[in-house]
Design a protein around this nucleic acid. Sequence first.
RNA 1: GAGAGCGUAGCUCAGUUGGUUAGAGCGACAGUUUGUGGCACUGUAGGUCGUGGGUUCGAGACCCAUCGUUCUCCCCA
Length: 457
Amino acid sequence: MSTKPGLPQGTRDFSAATVLKRNFIFNTIRNVFELYGFQPLETPAMENLETLMGKYGEEGDKLIFRILNNGLDNAAKHPQLREDFEKVLEGKNVKGITERALRYDLTIPFARYVAMNHGQLTFPFKRYQIQPVWRADRPQKGRYREFYQCDADVVGSYSLLNEVELTNIYATVFQQLGIDVEIRINSRKILAALAEQCGGAEHMTNITIAIDKLDKIGIDKVKEELSQRGLSNEQIAIIEQYLGINGTNAEKLRQLKQLLGNNTTAQKGWEEIEFILNYTSSLQEASSIVVDFTLARGLNYYTGIIFEIKAKNVQMGSIGGGGRYDDLTGLFGVPNIPGVGISFGVDRIYDVMEELKLFPAEVQSGTKVLFFNLGTAECQTAFSLMQQLRSKGIRCEIYHEQTKFDKQFKYADKKQIPYAVIIGSKELEEKVCNIKNLVSGEQQQVSFHELMNYQFI
RNA sequence: GAGAGCGUAGCUCAGUUGGUUAGAGCGACAGUUUGUGGCACUGUAGGUCGUGGGUUCGAGACCCAUCGUUCUCCCCA
């Protein structure tokens, strides 16, 4: 009995061309992370469900992939399991049914790691992590159920130099990849101040959710939504003024100070932003940093500066994001460890680079030389020459079947192999070989010794 | 969680108001002098039209269900 092959929804196979291109992105990011002193960490694909639950908001919890426990067919456990399953139907999580889940992001597993190991770690602790994550989302453009994140986080440091360096990392990576981006920054403190100004901190979530949608639904709809969420007309008026802030970064800051000038929380917020702008102002990347007071970000553990990356010239959701969270490990009983981090969404970066044709051709380079197989004795000589070339680090293949020229040429063509080495009976006798450049069609005859020193480009 | 589109050959797709035996291009394979490819020509293989029901004398086409997939909203990378 055979089953029709297929993939789970939202997952993909990656063939050679894709993997090579994606590795180019990974390597670029990894090199920059390491350049800034970050060290690698890997955590398991699955975590205990309770480690993840409640960390991503109500919506996020629904998107966590849960793993069904093994051994549910054990008849002795059935009475208890039936009881447990009733609770699952009510939307509760029960250890007896599902105890583990696939990781949803890299930040919470990292916080879990820090909470478990804080006694051994040297602070500030800088780690980077490149691994897939899983979300039970409905797939669509730029959205997958399995995708890679590349995170860099620093914990144990309040210094804004971290934010400055993370901004630099963003700028450097995207410059190297050739993607034109906006690095949007804001501070949660400014959003908190706005909430204070509008009747209290308890409105913060409502306000951020609504204004985050500004560029999508427009000011009128945002006002409508705020009204529905219980804000008064006066409060909405302040928010409208806030959302009307525009111009250059300096102009935006000036307008913000006018609006929230006497609020000490807001002041801390804009001082953070000004610190980053001052530190990066001498750098070339500075031009891509955009202060955006409407930036909110969904995850509610952020407390300070927040980042979001938007690629220019292409229709795609954010390709990176992050921010400061001053008490993430507090969720795991280890308080007072501040942190700040950023994340790259590799799969979306890939899609952007593909759409804008930004992958360099060298990324694809595979086999350089194909040795033709033109007979038993010919093949033996060719094989030995090939091994010598391989030992010099040149990527070679020999055609394993003895077959017509036509087929061997076509194989080279398909695999985009630029050189063929042809050794037939005549060449074997004279101890020479033909090197054919398959792109230009030029061919030259050289001795075996010369072949070893030939410059294959 | 809400909504829309699409499932026909390995791939991209045609297929008329329902009407004989299911179509093309590309790809694969074989051949056109068994030592120099990409071109051209000839030929071959490959499809229970996603699946299951229904309407009809007759369904790839119409209706219902189901599965898969793509996209939009929500939310996110």
